[in-house]
Amino acid sequence: MIRPLEHILIPVGLIAVGGLLGWSFFLAVTGEAGERLAAVALAHVPDSGVSNPVTSVLLNFRAYDTLLELAVLLAALLGIWSLGTAGSGFQPAASVLDGMVAGFVPLLILSAGYMLWVGAYAPGGAFQAGALLGAAGVMLALAGHRNAGLPSEGRLRLLVALGVFVFAMTGLLLMVVGDGFLTYPRGLAKWLILIIETAATLSIGATLAAAYLGGRPAAHPKSGEAT
């Protein structure tokens, strides 16, 4: 039996969308390019305070986008928290898994710190470092730690809002000083970027681990220490 929606309409629509996308992509790639944004961005990388082009675009030229992205992450976590409390977690791990987790979590935290520092001149940066911290939290959750190594709710709220707060405050302070929102002065750019990235790393890691728990942390007196 031929169902008209599934066997005719969807394939025809997909072919049409595909043809349109392919045609416009072909035109975009083969067409004569004017002055590209890449040339401007790459030319200004030495002024940005970091030498990794991607980090300089993320944290300097397009810092506005990154600030709003951290806000999106925070909003998603607030949405998850508003849907209810987290489940009761996994069973406590047996000794082999527990020993492996105890060895791996400090290594992950150490490599997150390395990733954060190295992001200034090589592949890496706040998002990758935050992902490693989040992975440490997921490992702890899988091994049966109910709160994934996150602090109690009051401090966790501060931690997940830290990235947006530090980012916005830096921007506002620069505005007060007279440089404009998130326009870093030459000499200070490297340090301002590092401060913002550190705060962003901590809150990305905490947000991802808290999102993995899938709900508001249940009130629990014997929660572990911060990741």
């Binding site: 990794n52 990733m115 940066g125 990758q128 992902a131 992975a135 991802l208 999102a211 993995y212």
Partner: peptide
Amino acid sequence: PDLALAEAAIGAGLSGAL
């Protein structure tokens, strides 16, 4: 390479765990 790191850690790892 920046994106490869992020995709392996976030796109594959964390999404996969979720």
